[in-house]
Amino acid sequence: MPGTKSAFSTAPHPLDAVLAQAGQIILGKPTEIRQAIACLLAGGHLLIEDLPGLGKTTLAHALARLLGLHFSRIQFTSDLLPADITGVSIFERDKSAFRFLPGPVFAQLVLADEINRATPKTQSALLEAMEEGQVTAEGQTRPLPTPFFVIATQNPAHQIGTFPLPESQLDRFLMRIELGYPDRAAERALLAAGGQGHHAERLSPLLDAADLPAMQDAVAGVHAAGPLIDYVQDLIEASRHTPAFQHGLSPRAGLALLAAGRAWAWLDGRSMVLPDDIQAVLPAVARHRLRAAQGGGYASREEIAALIRSVAIP
C-alpha cells in the first residue's frame, strides 16, 4: 500500500550511507559503529573504552565529519583545568570589558580523549555540561549548541595516574562500547591501506545541520508497545534480583535502554521496538551500569547474556 511504512521496510535508510562510509574508516566493526550512531540518535553520550591504538579517536572523528557536526577535541591530561574546557573571560583593553572565549566544549560533537587522565574536578566540569546542555562560567550561564554530543574515550583504568570515572558519572553515558582488536582480514586491509587518520579528514558530510534533529525526532517516535515495556521492566527487575550483580539497573538505565532500543529499531528501518533491539543494545547500555558481584568490575558479556537468558519474553 502506498503511503504506509512497513515494519520491515527494505527501502534504503538515510543513514545507510553514513554507516557504510564509517565502516570504510573503522574496518571490521559494523556493530560498534551502529551502536555509536544509535547512541547519538537517541541523544545520548558515548563512552568508548579500550586500549590505545584501536581507533577510538578515529571513530569519533569520522562520525563528526559524516554527520556534519561541528567537532572539537579535548585531550585530557592530569593538569587540565575546568576552564580549559569551558572557556575563560579575558579583559579587552580597548573595550574595557571582559570577553568570554568559549572553550572547546562549545561544539556539537566533543571528543573527550582519555577522560580518566584528568582530575575529578575537571571531569565533573565536562559531565555537568553533558547533563545540563549548558555551561556556567564566571556566574554566567551559556547554552551549548544543539545537538550536543560527547564521545569520551577511556583507557582501561589499571594504569598509573588515572582517575577512573565513578559510577555516578558512568551513568551519564547512554552507552559504553569497546572496539577490541580488528579481525585478521580487517587488519590486513588496514595495513595494506597504510594508516587511516587522513581518511577521516577527507570524508565529506553526508547530512546537514537540520537532518540530525529531525532524525532524533523520528527515533523518539518509534513505538514501544506494552509488552515491550514489560520486557524492559522484567530485565531491570531481574538485574536487581540476580546475585550476579552488586546492585541492579536504575530507572534511568531503564529509560536509556528504551531510548537506545528505539534508535536501534529506527536504524533497522522499523517503526516499532522489538525485544531483539533491547537484547542488542543491552550490553552497551547495561554493562557499565552494573557491577559484578565477584571482582567488582563491569558486568561481563557472559553475565549480561545470562541476564537475557533469565528473562522470558512476554
Binding site: A7, H223, A225, L228, M272, V273, L274
Partner: peptide
C-alpha cells in the same frame, strides 16, 4: 513472525 511482531509490538 512478521505478522505476529506487527500484531503484538506494532503501533
Amino acid at each position: 513472525v512478521e505478522a505476529y511482531l506487527q500484531a503484538r509490538y506494532g503501533k
